[in-house]
């Protein structure tokens, strides 16, 4: 009689113990090992983020294979612009230090769009001390050329004043741009 009276309690206690053990095991297996090392998160997630592959490099990364363009660019007014902005990412071009894919090269009207993205005077918000802007087609009319001219017919894309400075020197005009390209 006594034992009969206890059975259901024993069952409940047993059930609770089993549930606790299962719960403990489940938590142990479901929680990643590094969880809680630094806080309420998986510490290894930091390393996962660190291991994300780089797609952009820096302008320096182009030097070894394109020393001519690099030097021209470095000496010119455009040295603050990223090669990869105009051309595409390093990762699409070079893999494991070897050439892996072609980068597109802009031509014609695309170049005009590219230049005006930064130099369009019509967008009033461009601070004068940061960038010089031009009004189209007035800029071309000022040069007395047809308005169909593309910017790189007079400006080298990598050193926008190199031709102009040279032409001015040839014509005996004083170097208005202090020789900067």
């Amino acid at each position: 009689m006594q034992s009969d009276y206890n059975t259901h309690i024993k069952r409940i206690v047993l059930l609770l113990v089993v549930a606790a053990v299962l719960g403990f095991l489940a938590k142990k297996f479901a929680t990643p090992t590094s969880f809680g090392k630094y806080g309420h998160y998986r510490a290894d997630a930091i390393q996962d983020e660190v291991d994300r592959p780089l797609r952009h490099m820096t302008n320096e990364s182009c030097l070894s294979c394109h020393p001519f363009e690099w030097e021209l660019h470095e000496q010119g007014r455009h040295k603050t612009i990223s090669c990869e902005f105009c051309h595409g990412t390093y990762a699409d071009h070079v893999q494991d230090g070897k050439f892996a894919g072609r980068l597109p090269v802009k031509k014609g009207e695309e170049i005009k769009t590219l230049c005006l993205r930064c130099h369009n005077k019509a967008i009033k918000a461009r601070p004068k001390d940061v960038i010089k802007t031009v009004e189209m087609p007035r800029h071309l009319e000022d040069q007395h050329v047809q308005v169909t001219h593309i910017c790189n017919q007079c400006h080298h894309v990598h050193a926008p004043l190199i031709y102009i400075n040279h032409a001015q020197k040839v014509l005996g005009i004083e170097e208005a741009n202090n020789g900067k390209q």
């Binding site: 820096t58 070894s64 294979c65 394109h66 020393p67 070079v94 893999q95 494991d96 230090g97 070897k98």
Partner: peptide, 28 residues
């Protein structure tokens, strides 16, 4: 100049790997 510098340097680098993005970084 492109042909002289660019291409020759380019083809040399096709042979000599630079470490790449995964290994030691070449860029400063």
């Amino acid at each position: 100049k492109n042909v002289l510098k660019g291409t020759i340097a380019g083809s040399l680098l096709l042979v000599i790997p630079m470490g790449g993005a995964s290994g030691s970084l070449e860029v400063p």
